[in-house]
Design a protein around this nucleic acid. Sequence first.
DNA 1: GCTGACAGAAAGATCATACTTTTGGCAACA
DNA 2: TGTTGCCAAAAGTATGATCTTTCTGTCAGC
Lengths: 239, 239
Amino acid sequence: MHGVEQHSGVLDRLGESIASGARAPGTVLTLAVLEKEFGVSRTLVREVVRVLESMGMVEARRRVGVTVRPPRDWNPFDPRLIRWRLGGPGRDEQLRSLTELRTAIEPVAARLAAVRADESTRRRLVELAARLRELGEARRGTDPEYLQVDTAYHALLLEASGNPMLAALQGVVAEVLSGRTALGLMPRSPDPGALGDHVATAAAVASGDAAAAETRARAVVMEVLEGVVEGTDEHDGRP
Amino acid sequence: MHGVEQHSGVLDRLGESIASGARAPGTVLTLAVLEKEFGVSRTLVREVVRVLESMGMVEARRRVGVTVRPPRDWNPFDPRLIRWRLGGPGRDEQLRSLTELRTAIEPVAARLAAVRADESTRRRLVELAARLRELGEARRGTDPEYLQVDTAYHALLLEASGNPMLAALQGVVAEVLSGRTALGLMPRSPDPGALGDHVATAAAVASGDAAAAETRARAVVMEVLEGVVEGTDEHDGRP
DNA sequence: GCTGACAGAAAGATCATACTTTTGGCAACA
DNA sequence: TGTTGCCAAAAGTATGATCTTTCTGTCAGC
């Protein structure tokens, strides 16, 4: 019964139950109760609570217990919290937040990349964009390979920004992209304009044209945003 | 010797020494050593290590010890890490990252706010912008009150975006603003254009003009960015 | 000399328990 | 009614014991 990742297991179970709202803000727990509920020792419960506390999700006070804090106190950038939300009832809301964040981040990342990226990065970015267009024009927008190239492209762009905070968002952007595919929101034939903007962004970055890179990247994310706003995109193959 | 916030004290000391680079990536520690170094029990050290692990700053492995991970694995959005960096040798670099992040975030926040903000929020935003202009025109750009109003204005804008991730960045924006003032980078007479853009952004949000709000907010942050790029701004009062 | 199995040890992971410190609440009192 | 002071509850900390994993070295077999 011991030994197999108890800490992360309990952390996930407790964190998820808070993130999902199953344990509402204001709920008071005690270490003793948690001990019994999860069948682990006090030591382990404390460590888990400490981590949750560091995420702003709970507050432990003497004589009171462990109180669940309201969502606005949570650190919404914690990867674990994002995962819990994506796996629970808050999934759509979380995807919306992330998508909006993306519209903010990517254009600036493109601008910075145009100034800072090294040669090989610029080249790779252009290659990825070209490959993406190929796949799109071949009506392979729902292929795993399309998703993979798309993810690599956006990740590289963020990385190339030279800003650690922007670069750290690679994971969440990947989540948005794969989430979109998983939900069947990708058309087999991606919008030619969007594909062109991917290519144009890469070209602008490659040539060091910061203003153009930002503008084109903005066009990319704006098209994405419209897709999400409209909700269910019409899929290819329908009349 | 017991009882007084040992956890956060040890966490801060250890975390800061890692963030500052005093303990380089790859450095291996053991719980036993940390116990002795900080003069606390294993329990406490473990809890601290668990928190640092949750931030991606260290990795604990059996038979090996606690290894310091490279900065690119750290979660740069963790408020504690940001604080440690702002207090150490990475201060300038951190401020640059935050400023760039700000240029990404604020225009989008303005756009969203124009669509989502409620009436009283729109009103307050307009009031704050007006007050900011008054103070600026009265050559009080270095006043604590100017900083306070400026901070409140930007915080409200982020809050009004209705996006929790953007709203969560209030604290870091506040850090940037106060950092800028603390470093003496604020002129007594802020640029009239910038003041005007603050007002125009608020007006656009108030009238629900999303496109204008985004454009004007972008003008605000771009002016800021130029100031930072130029580094030492010429202060008012010189020939 | 190279490969692979085995033994031992090192270090974290977990548990159980005891003791300390803070603090919320209540009751007695002014 | 307000204030003071006590008590018990619950987190905070410390410590010792045990379990588990994994690294390392060694020795047998090829």
